[in-house]
Design a protein around this nucleic acid. Sequence first.
DNA 1: GAGTGATCATTAAGCGCTTAACCACCCTAC
DNA 2: GTAGGGTGGTTAAGCGCTTAATGATCACTC
Lengths: 338, 338
Amino acid sequence: MPAKRPTISDIARAAGVSTGAVSYALNNRPGVSEPTRRRIMAIADRLGWVPSSAARSLSDGRANAIGLVVDRPARVIGVEPYFMQLISGIQGALAGGPTSLLLQVTDNAAAELAAYRRWWGERRVDGVLLVDLVQDDPRVELVRELRLPAVVLGEPVVDDVPCVWTDDAVAVVEVLEYLVALGHRRIVRVAGPTRFVHTQTRSRAFTTTAARLGLTGARVVHADYSDEAAARVTRRVLTGGEPPTALVFDNDVMAVSALGVAQELGLSVPEQLSLVAWDDSALCRLVRPALSAVRRPIAERGAEAVRLLLRVIDGAAVEQVRTSDPELVPRASTGPLR
Amino acid sequence: MPAKRPTISDIARAAGVSTGAVSYALNNRPGVSEPTRRRIMAIADRLGWVPSSAARSLSDGRANAIGLVVDRPARVIGVEPYFMQLISGIQGALAGGPTSLLLQVTDNAAAELAAYRRWWGERRVDGVLLVDLVQDDPRVELVRELRLPAVVLGEPVVDDVPCVWTDDAVAVVEVLEYLVALGHRRIVRVAGPTRFVHTQTRSRAFTTTAARLGLTGARVVHADYSDEAAARVTRRVLTGGEPPTALVFDNDVMAVSALGVAQELGLSVPEQLSLVAWDDSALCRLVRPALSAVRRPIAERGAEAVRLLLRVIDGAAVEQVRTSDPELVPRASTGPLR
DNA sequence: GAGTGATCATTAAGCGCTTAACCACCCTAC
DNA sequence: GTAGGGTGGTTAAGCGCTTAATGATCACTC
């Protein structure tokens, strides 16, 4: 059983005023004189008073928490730095404020929906962050139905839901033009699962840009972000007819995995094969050759999303915030075609 | 503003009973007849009722949440798979129950202490998980003072605080004997910061085992878990006098970083240098050569810690749960000395 | 000297739920 | 016929906080 925590009644008694006065004082609202306010605050301070979030929630209806559900199988989640970076960005924006982060990791979409619904029912969160949107995402429908404030981390898909996004298309173009400038013509994009909206966006940009640049050998294959799947796909692509001279991946793990495959196959990187990862991370820097990668401001986006969500919770109008464009960080894994 | 959520009064009205009866019925306690209970539950179900966590907390004093603070600089946090694995283990044990996870990422110890104190004051958590204990850790003192239920993820340091741990020493011994069997005599351990208890334990085991095995060239150097620091230290060690033939690291990131350094220096792994990582992860599997690593049951430990914490919250006696021993997973980065 | 505001404080209701205390009723026992 | 003992409910207080409504006090004004 935890130690005793002071309540506003304790403060009121110590100060010789009513609890109402204490409440007004501590919340910096009119209703108490300046000297009294100061006296009350001093006492609260001395007693180490902290407002009970339950009591506060109950009376003002705010949970002072936001929720994030990450729907990735346990096997994958540890590997991808993405989420931890995102979380650390989120925390940055939350720090100092009264709001906490509720995190849930699930391994299927239904559980994710259930989690949001439960949080809403329990009034545990004031709003939620949505990541990895899919086409006609049921979560969008859900937050709309529940009128639960939400911010999508990703490009705008519907216009009544706020979002913060980066324009992935510009990076796709940048990467392709960069590779073409190095002499590559047969380029394969190893994408994540098709269902994700961002996968589709990037693939579309990839296809149209490839066409514009006259790359006939360009195509898109899919994997599930895991190293195993990436290895399988990469091996197939590299040993098939007309093997590509450059591969572009949808995350860092797959790119690193492919690097291993290339080495197994005796292909030297970048002399015979160029590799580009998406989402730069320490992982990309750590391997040899270090991987060229598209860097997105992940933590910054997380922080921006939180700020937007807090505004939305306070009743702000729907906004679609665009953060800085992703950029290609060239390293040792890309080079001129020999 | 969120949509309307049903309360027990709504249910009571619909069922024509008092809210007290509804409460008894929904909590499966005596006080209502079986038919009435069923009727009430059916209505609750139809209405989609979910208990308000705030109201419940306020009346029964339980927050139905546990807290975890991770104190690592943002730069490092993304890279290490450790925490995500831990979190996913935690979630596994929480799934299905009424308890949620509150997560905070901070970048200094004071902020971590403040976070625990705040959560306690706000009555937001019923208990907390403590990771990365240091010597005379102030957090131990804090949870004791606040009488906040806590479980340490790590070896027993004081006996009034429950913990779940693995015996790292046995793995240290295993690794050393393995390396010695391969012919290595000059072995350096690249450890994490000295302040962590687990660092000290491993170093102690390393030193005594090395002495027992008669390894005069064995020593311990320190880095801060980051790839940069590890690269620096590794470079220094490998280019100094009497360079080691085997390196043992305290995490995966440092080992991978060292692999890069070895390649830069023209040392082939494992022919000229063997590397062992601590905490196996996809990262270790991904690089070439794949890294031999000590695998600890991280997710399992997280789950076990949660189960223990929930028991402690319910008033169980202090336990010190020991989970399965870490084991060495030999891969391509270790081999006989040439 | 009554009326009019300010100003600073108190009172009390209410947020949604739990739970001890109470009550009405029927059944059995002697 | 009344004491005793379950059942199956209701009542009401309380968890810690917010806040509208109310009230007391003092300072001006005409």
